[in-house]
Design a protein around this nucleic acid. Sequence first.
DNA 1: GTGTGACTCAAAGTCCGTT
DNA 2: AAACGGACTTTGAGTCACA
Lengths: 72, 72
Amino acid sequence: MSSDSGSAIQKRFGENLRSIRKSKGLSQETLALICGLDRTYIGGVERGERNISLVNIVKIAQSLGVEAKDFF
Amino acid sequence: MSSDSGSAIQKRFGENLRSIRKSKGLSQETLALICGLDRTYIGGVERGERNISLVNIVKIAQSLGVEAKDFF
DNA sequence: GTGTGACTCAAAGTCCGTT
DNA sequence: AAACGGACTTTGAGTCACA
């Protein structure tokens, strides 16, 4: 099918998130556990497939010990 | 349940948005027109009532000529 | 020019699993 | 450890009439 799931914005955000998560030495599962979100959801965001909302952006940022602005 | 209308995160985001919009001398209506969103939607975000998602955050930022990170 | 409640509907987000 | 899919519930997106 169209391998175009997700906007460029989402893809960039996802790449940044993945990069920061890895730099903290956390797995998707562990991060998901810390911030109370689903592991498959975190994965989807990192792949740029999901349009994450404000509250969860901040939740994930706090769980990683960074500022929300670092994802942009 | 006891969902207050809007989290602290949303309220802070909304305040920042409103402040930036006003500094650009734009009304909610004008901004809404520029970014293709409804004026009542913009208003709801500014009041901290809505949990806006990534794509619309960037859309509004671009319409204001600022970076998305400026809202955080 | 803005606030607000109510509404529809698509998408956000969860939970189960297999690869 | 992560990608991916199906089925599910909840919430955001988008709009309107009225204050």
